[in-house]
Simulated scan of single mutants.
Amino acid sequence: MSPRKLARAASPRAPRNPQGRHPGSAGQPGAVPLSAAHRVSPRTIQLLLEQAGITYSDFVLEQRLLRADPLLRNPVMRTRRIIEIAHLAGFHDVSYLHRVFRRHFGQTPDDVRRLADDPG
């Protein structure tokens, strides 16, 4: 399984595990649900991520950030508070979202939303 397939599997649209949660969601034991969903061992997941140079935690964090960014820019989501968008993207702590979002994108979620609202 390629890192690209892993990205699709861990994305918010990924197949759910038997408990109805996405692989890697809070309360799940790391790569185990993801590996079960794709019928490979957790070690295989770990090796694939190692080859890509990332940890499972980093991988999940990046997928959540990549989910939050378009939600913040989406005009349909303008009425939603950032904490709601954080939860939709898989973050349970909005201040953590702000910190890692700024580190990753160089802007805060508020900045991204403000720029998306600015027509010109």
Score class of each variant (00 low, 15 high):
residue 1 M to R: 07
residue 2 S to A: 13
residue 2 S to I: 11
residue 2 S to C: 11
residue 3 P to R: 07
residue 4 R to K: 15
residue 4 R to A: 15
residue 4 R to H: 14
residue 7 A to T: 04
residue 8 R to S: 13
residue 9 A to R: 06
residue 9 A to L: 15
residue 10 A to F: 06
residue 11 S to F: 05
residue 11 S to Q: 07
residue 11 S to I: 00
residue 13 R to G: 12
residue 13 R to N: 09
residue 14 A to K: 03
residue 14 A to L: 04
residue 14 A to E: 04
residue 15 P to W: 03
residue 16 R to L: 15
residue 16 R to I: 02
residue 20 G to N: 06
residue 20 G to R: 12
residue 22 H to G: 08
residue 22 H to E: 06
residue 22 H to L: 15
residue 23 P to Q: 09
residue 24 G to H: 02
residue 25 S to P: 00
residue 26 A to C: 08
residue 26 A to P: 03
residue 26 A to Y: 10
residue 27 G to R: 07
residue 27 G to Q: 08
residue 28 Q to C: 08
residue 28 Q to H: 10
residue 29 P to I: 03
residue 30 G to V: 01
residue 34 L to R: 06
residue 35 S to A: 15
residue 36 A to D: 13
residue 37 A to S: 15
residue 39 R to A: 13
residue 40 V to P: 05
residue 40 V to Y: 14
residue 42 P to S: 05
residue 42 P to R: 02
residue 44 T to M: 10
residue 46 Q to P: 02
residue 46 Q to V: 14
residue 48 L to W: 12
residue 48 L to Q: 15
residue 48 L to P: 04
residue 49 L to S: 03
residue 49 L to V: 04
residue 51 Q to I: 12
residue 51 Q to M: 12
residue 52 A to N: 10
residue 52 A to P: 07
residue 54 I to Y: 05
residue 55 T to G: 13
residue 55 T to E: 06
residue 55 T to Y: 08
residue 57 S to D: 13
residue 57 S to W: 06
residue 58 D to M: 06
residue 58 D to P: 01
residue 59 F to K: 00
residue 59 F to V: 01
residue 61 L to C: 05
residue 63 Q to M: 11
residue 63 Q to G: 09
residue 63 Q to S: 10
residue 64 R to H: 02
residue 64 R to C: 02
residue 64 R to K: 14
residue 65 L to Y: 04
residue 66 L to Q: 12
residue 67 R to H: 12
residue 68 A to L: 02
residue 68 A to D: 01
residue 68 A to Q: 00
residue 69 D to M: 08
residue 69 D to L: 13
residue 69 D to N: 04
residue 69 D to A: 07
residue 69 D to P: 01
residue 70 P to Q: 04
residue 71 L to M: 13
residue 71 L to C: 03
residue 73 R to I: 13
residue 74 N to V: 08
residue 74 N to Q: 09
residue 74 N to L: 09
residue 79 T to C: 10
residue 79 T to V: 11
residue 79 T to P: 01
residue 81 R to W: 06
residue 84 E to F: 08
residue 85 I to F: 01
residue 86 A to L: 04
residue 87 H to W: 11
residue 87 H to P: 00
residue 88 L to Y: 08
residue 88 L to I: 07
residue 88 L to R: 01
residue 89 A to S: 09
residue 90 G to P: 00
residue 91 F to W: 09
residue 93 D to Y: 12
residue 95 S to P: 00
residue 95 S to W: 12
residue 96 Y to H: 10
residue 97 L to G: 00
residue 98 H to R: 15
residue 98 H to A: 11
residue 99 R to Y: 11
residue 100 V to W: 05
residue 100 V to K: 00
residue 101 F to D: 00
residue 102 R to K: 11
residue 102 R to V: 02
residue 103 R to I: 03
residue 103 R to H: 06
residue 104 H to Q: 08
residue 106 G to N: 13
residue 106 G to V: 10
residue 107 Q to H: 13
residue 108 T to P: 04
residue 108 T to H: 07
residue 108 T to N: 07
residue 108 T to G: 05
residue 108 T to E: 06
residue 109 P to I: 01
residue 109 P to Q: 01
residue 110 D to F: 09
residue 111 D to E: 14
residue 111 D to I: 01
residue 111 D to L: 06
residue 112 V to F: 02
residue 112 V to G: 00
residue 113 R to F: 06
residue 114 R to H: 09
residue 114 R to Q: 12
residue 114 R to S: 13
residue 115 L to H: 12
residue 115 L to D: 11
residue 115 L to R: 11
residue 115 L to N: 11
residue 117 D to E: 14
residue 118 D to K: 13
residue 120 G to P: 07
residue 120 G to Y: 14
